[in-house]
Amino acid sequence: MQASIQIPATPELDYLLRLGDTCLISGQRLGEWCGHGPILEEDIALSNMALDLIGQSRALLTLAGQKSGKGFDEDQLAFLRDEGAYRNPTLAELPRGDFAFTILRNLVLSTWLKLIWERLRDSRDAELAAIAGKALKEARYHQQHAADWAVRLGDGTEESRRRCEAALAQIAPYLPELFEDDTVDAAAEASGLGPAWSSLREPWLAEMGEVLGEAGLALPESTKFRSTGKVGRHSEHMGYLLAEMQYLQRAYPGGAW
Protein backbone atom coordinates (compact mmCIF):
# COMPACT_ATOMS: atom_id res chain seq x y z
CA MET A 1 0.00 0.00 0.00
CA GLN A 2 1.13 3.54 -0.72
CA ALA A 3 2.15 5.27 2.53
CA SER A 4 0.68 8.58 3.71
CA ILE A 5 2.41 11.91 3.26
CA GLN A 6 3.05 14.23 6.19
CA ILE A 7 2.44 17.90 5.72
CA PRO A 8 3.92 20.64 7.89
CA ALA A 9 1.34 22.41 10.04
CA THR A 10 1.57 26.12 9.30
CA PRO A 11 -1.34 28.55 9.62
CA GLU A 12 -1.00 29.50 5.96
CA LEU A 13 -1.20 25.88 4.76
CA ASP A 14 -4.08 25.20 7.12
CA TYR A 15 -6.01 28.16 5.75
CA LEU A 16 -5.54 26.96 2.16
CA LEU A 17 -6.35 23.36 3.00
CA ARG A 18 -9.51 24.30 4.85
CA LEU A 19 -10.76 25.90 1.69
CA GLY A 20 -9.30 23.38 -0.76
CA ASP A 21 -10.63 20.41 1.20
CA THR A 22 -14.09 21.98 1.43
CA CYS A 23 -14.16 22.10 -2.38
CA LEU A 24 -12.69 18.62 -2.72
CA ILE A 25 -15.00 16.89 -0.28
CA SER A 26 -18.12 18.75 -1.49
CA GLY A 27 -17.22 17.82 -5.06
CA GLN A 28 -16.79 14.20 -4.00
CA ARG A 29 -20.25 14.16 -2.40
CA LEU A 30 -21.95 15.87 -5.35
CA GLY A 31 -20.33 13.40 -7.72
CA GLU A 32 -22.31 10.66 -5.99
CA TRP A 33 -25.48 12.05 -7.58
CA CYS A 34 -24.37 11.36 -11.12
CA GLY A 35 -26.96 9.06 -12.67
CA HIS A 36 -29.24 9.21 -9.64
CA GLY A 37 -30.85 12.66 -9.84
CA PRO A 38 -34.62 13.27 -9.80
CA ILE A 39 -34.54 14.52 -13.40
CA LEU A 40 -31.92 14.34 -16.11
CA GLU A 41 -31.31 18.10 -16.02
CA GLU A 42 -30.31 17.81 -12.34
CA ASP A 43 -27.97 14.89 -12.99
CA ILE A 44 -26.21 17.21 -15.38
CA ALA A 45 -26.31 20.27 -13.11
CA LEU A 46 -25.01 18.43 -10.04
CA SER A 47 -22.20 16.76 -12.00
CA ASN A 48 -21.33 20.12 -13.45
CA MET A 49 -21.05 21.66 -10.00
CA ALA A 50 -19.00 18.71 -8.80
CA LEU A 51 -16.70 19.37 -11.72
CA ASP A 52 -16.34 23.05 -10.78
CA LEU A 53 -15.57 22.16 -7.17
CA ILE A 54 -12.99 19.56 -8.14
CA GLY A 55 -11.39 22.17 -10.40
CA GLN A 56 -11.24 24.67 -7.54
CA SER A 57 -9.76 22.07 -5.21
CA ARG A 58 -7.07 21.25 -7.79
CA ALA A 59 -6.00 24.89 -7.95
CA LEU A 60 -5.95 25.27 -4.18
CA LEU A 61 -4.19 21.99 -3.47
CA THR A 62 -1.59 22.76 -6.09
CA LEU A 63 -0.96 26.09 -4.40
CA ALA A 64 -0.84 24.44 -0.98
CA GLY A 65 1.62 21.87 -2.33
CA GLN A 66 3.92 24.62 -3.55
CA LYS A 67 3.80 26.28 -0.16
CA SER A 68 4.43 23.01 1.70
CA GLY A 69 8.12 23.21 0.81
CA LYS A 70 8.02 19.49 0.07
CA GLY A 71 6.98 19.59 -3.56
CA PHE A 72 3.68 17.79 -3.06
CA ASP A 73 1.29 17.86 -6.02
CA GLU A 74 -2.50 18.05 -6.01
CA ASP A 75 -2.92 14.29 -6.10
CA GLN A 76 -0.58 13.56 -3.24
CA LEU A 77 -2.54 16.05 -1.18
CA ALA A 78 -5.92 14.78 -2.31
CA PHE A 79 -5.25 11.06 -2.00
CA LEU A 80 -2.36 10.41 0.35
CA ARG A 81 -3.12 12.26 3.55
CA ASP A 82 -4.37 10.58 6.67
CA GLU A 83 -7.87 11.51 7.73
CA GLY A 84 -6.66 13.85 10.46
CA ALA A 85 -4.79 15.99 7.92
CA TYR A 86 -7.94 16.92 5.99
CA ARG A 87 -9.16 20.35 7.00
CA ASN A 88 -12.69 20.71 5.64
CA PRO A 89 -15.45 21.72 8.04
CA THR A 90 -17.49 18.64 8.93
CA LEU A 91 -20.60 19.80 7.05
CA ALA A 92 -18.96 19.09 3.70
CA GLU A 93 -18.39 15.40 4.45
CA LEU A 94 -21.89 14.47 5.68
CA PRO A 95 -23.56 11.89 3.39
CA ARG A 96 -25.42 13.28 0.40
CA GLY A 97 -28.81 12.54 1.93
CA ASP A 98 -31.95 13.25 -0.11
CA PHE A 99 -32.26 15.97 -2.73
CA ALA A 100 -33.46 18.50 -0.12
CA PHE A 101 -30.39 17.93 2.03
CA THR A 102 -28.08 18.23 -0.95
CA ILE A 103 -29.75 21.46 -2.11
CA LEU A 104 -29.72 23.10 1.30
CA ARG A 105 -26.16 22.10 2.06
CA ASN A 106 -25.22 23.48 -1.37
CA LEU A 107 -27.01 26.69 -0.53
CA VAL A 108 -25.12 26.99 2.76
CA LEU A 109 -21.73 26.18 1.30
CA SER A 110 -22.03 27.99 -2.03
CA THR A 111 -23.16 31.18 -0.27
CA TRP A 112 -20.26 30.82 2.15
CA LEU A 113 -17.75 30.06 -0.60
CA LYS A 114 -19.03 32.91 -2.74
CA LEU A 115 -18.42 35.35 0.13
CA ILE A 116 -14.97 33.97 0.76
CA TRP A 117 -14.03 34.12 -2.94
CA GLU A 118 -15.21 37.72 -3.11
CA ARG A 119 -12.84 38.64 -0.31
CA LEU A 120 -9.99 36.50 -1.59
CA ARG A 121 -9.84 38.47 -4.82
CA ASP A 122 -7.96 41.00 -2.67
CA SER A 123 -5.63 38.45 -1.13
CA ARG A 124 -2.03 39.53 -0.81
CA ASP A 125 -1.22 36.20 -2.44
CA ALA A 126 -1.57 36.90 -6.17
CA GLU A 127 -2.15 33.26 -7.08
CA LEU A 128 -4.88 32.85 -4.52
CA ALA A 129 -6.50 36.05 -5.77
CA ALA A 130 -6.48 34.70 -9.33
CA ILE A 131 -8.05 31.40 -8.24
CA ALA A 132 -10.72 33.36 -6.39
CA GLY A 133 -11.58 35.46 -9.41
CA LYS A 134 -12.40 32.39 -11.47
CA ALA A 135 -14.09 30.46 -8.67
CA LEU A 136 -16.36 33.36 -7.80
CA LYS A 137 -18.27 33.09 -11.07
CA GLU A 138 -18.82 29.39 -10.48
CA ALA A 139 -19.92 29.87 -6.87
CA ARG A 140 -22.47 32.49 -7.97
CA TYR A 141 -24.02 29.98 -10.31
CA HIS A 142 -24.01 27.28 -7.63
CA GLN A 143 -25.69 29.63 -5.19
CA GLN A 144 -28.33 30.60 -7.74
CA HIS A 145 -29.05 26.97 -8.57
CA ALA A 146 -29.42 26.04 -4.90
CA ALA A 147 -31.53 29.12 -4.15
CA ASP A 148 -33.94 28.39 -7.02
CA TRP A 149 -34.44 24.85 -5.80
CA ALA A 150 -34.72 25.87 -2.14
CA VAL A 151 -37.61 28.15 -3.09
CA ARG A 152 -39.26 25.47 -5.22
CA LEU A 153 -38.95 22.86 -2.51
CA GLY A 154 -39.83 25.14 0.40
CA ASP A 155 -42.92 26.39 -1.40
CA GLY A 156 -43.82 23.20 -3.31
CA THR A 157 -45.70 20.50 -1.40
CA GLU A 158 -46.20 19.41 2.21
CA GLU A 159 -43.63 16.71 1.69
CA SER A 160 -40.97 18.88 0.07
CA ARG A 161 -41.36 21.45 2.83
CA ARG A 162 -41.08 18.79 5.54
CA ARG A 163 -37.93 17.41 3.88
CA CYS A 164 -36.40 20.90 3.74
CA GLU A 165 -37.09 21.48 7.41
CA ALA A 166 -35.55 18.12 8.30
CA ALA A 167 -32.49 18.96 6.20
CA LEU A 168 -32.03 22.33 7.87
CA ALA A 169 -32.34 20.73 11.30
CA GLN A 170 -29.61 18.31 10.30
CA ILE A 171 -27.37 21.04 8.91
CA ALA A 172 -27.76 23.63 11.67
CA PRO A 173 -25.41 22.07 14.26
CA TYR A 174 -22.56 22.20 11.74
CA LEU A 175 -22.92 25.92 10.97
CA PRO A 176 -20.96 27.48 13.86
CA GLU A 177 -17.79 25.80 12.60
CA LEU A 178 -18.04 27.95 9.45
CA PHE A 179 -17.95 31.19 11.40
CA GLU A 180 -15.76 30.75 14.47
CA ASP A 181 -12.15 31.92 14.36
CA ASP A 182 -9.01 30.31 15.67
CA THR A 183 -5.30 31.01 15.28
CA VAL A 184 -5.43 30.10 11.59
CA ASP A 185 -7.92 32.90 10.92
CA ALA A 186 -5.96 35.39 13.00
CA ALA A 187 -2.78 34.65 11.05
CA ALA A 188 -4.56 34.84 7.67
CA GLU A 189 -6.09 38.17 8.50
CA ALA A 190 -2.83 39.56 9.86
CA SER A 191 -0.84 38.50 6.80
CA GLY A 192 -3.49 39.62 4.32
CA LEU A 193 -3.85 36.07 2.98
CA GLY A 194 -7.62 36.07 3.46
CA PRO A 195 -10.53 36.96 5.69
CA ALA A 196 -11.16 35.54 9.15
CA TRP A 197 -14.14 33.25 8.81
CA SER A 198 -16.07 35.14 11.50
CA SER A 199 -16.26 38.13 9.18
CA LEU A 200 -18.40 36.09 6.77
CA ARG A 201 -21.14 35.51 9.28
CA GLU A 202 -23.18 38.70 8.91
CA PRO A 203 -23.30 38.82 5.09
CA TRP A 204 -23.95 35.06 5.03
CA LEU A 205 -26.90 35.40 7.39
CA ALA A 206 -28.29 38.24 5.28
CA GLU A 207 -28.09 36.31 1.99
CA MET A 208 -29.39 33.09 3.52
CA GLY A 209 -32.23 34.98 5.19
CA GLU A 210 -33.33 36.37 1.86
CA VAL A 211 -33.49 32.99 0.13
CA LEU A 212 -34.97 31.09 3.05
CA GLY A 213 -37.53 33.86 3.54
CA GLU A 214 -38.70 33.47 -0.03
CA ALA A 215 -38.82 29.71 0.47
CA GLY A 216 -40.87 30.07 3.65
CA LEU A 217 -38.09 28.40 5.63
CA ALA A 218 -35.91 29.48 8.53
CA LEU A 219 -32.63 28.44 10.09
CA PRO A 220 -33.17 26.51 13.33
CA GLU A 221 -31.76 27.79 16.64
CA SER A 222 -28.06 27.16 17.04
CA THR A 223 -26.91 24.30 19.23
CA LYS A 224 -24.14 23.84 21.77
CA PHE A 225 -22.65 21.07 19.66
CA ARG A 226 -19.47 22.05 17.82
CA SER A 227 -18.06 20.17 14.86
CA THR A 228 -14.29 20.14 14.41
CA GLY A 229 -13.47 18.97 10.90
CA LYS A 230 -11.33 22.02 10.18
CA VAL A 231 -8.83 21.00 12.85
CA GLY A 232 -8.78 17.44 11.53
CA ARG A 233 -11.23 15.72 13.90
CA HIS A 234 -13.95 14.52 11.53
CA SER A 235 -17.24 12.66 11.70
CA GLU A 236 -17.48 8.90 11.26
CA HIS A 237 -18.54 9.46 7.66
CA MET A 238 -15.14 10.79 6.63
CA GLY A 239 -13.32 7.47 6.88
CA TYR A 240 -15.65 5.80 4.40
CA LEU A 241 -15.49 8.73 2.03
CA LEU A 242 -11.68 8.66 2.05
CA ALA A 243 -11.46 4.88 1.78
CA GLU A 244 -13.44 5.08 -1.44
CA MET A 245 -11.71 8.16 -2.79
CA GLN A 246 -8.15 7.04 -2.00
CA TYR A 247 -8.46 3.37 -2.85
CA LEU A 248 -6.67 3.27 -6.21
CA GLN A 249 -3.78 5.50 -5.17
CA ARG A 250 -3.29 3.40 -2.04
CA ALA A 251 -3.65 0.03 -3.73
CA TYR A 252 -1.30 0.67 -6.67
CA PRO A 253 1.89 2.19 -5.26
CA GLY A 254 3.98 3.84 -7.95
CA GLY A 255 1.12 3.67 -10.44
CA ALA A 256 0.74 6.02 -13.40
CA TRP A 257 -2.73 7.29 -14.18
Binding site: R58, A78, M245, Y247
Partner: peptide
Protein backbone atom coordinates in the same frame (compact mmCIF):
# COMPACT_ATOMS: atom_id res chain seq x y z
CA UNK B 1 -16.10 5.10 -10.79
CA UNK B 2 -16.48 8.86 -10.25
CA UNK B 3 -15.94 8.62 -6.51
CA UNK B 4 -12.95 6.30 -6.99
CA UNK B 5 -11.14 7.98 -9.88
CA UNK B 6 -7.40 7.78 -9.17
CA UNK B 7 -6.40 11.41 -9.76
CA UNK B 8 -8.22 14.71 -9.68
CA UNK B 9 -7.60 15.20 -13.39
CA UNK B 10 -9.15 11.81 -14.20
CA UNK B 11 -12.04 12.54 -11.85
CA UNK B 12 -12.70 15.82 -13.67
CA UNK B 13 -12.50 14.15 -17.10
CA UNK B 14 -14.86 11.39 -16.02
CA UNK B 15 -17.36 13.82 -14.49
CA UNK B 16 -17.32 15.84 -17.70
CA UNK B 17 -17.78 12.72 -19.78
CA UNK B 18 -20.69 11.33 -17.83
CA UNK B 19 -22.25 14.78 -17.88
Amino acid sequence: WITRAPTLKRKAILLAKVQ
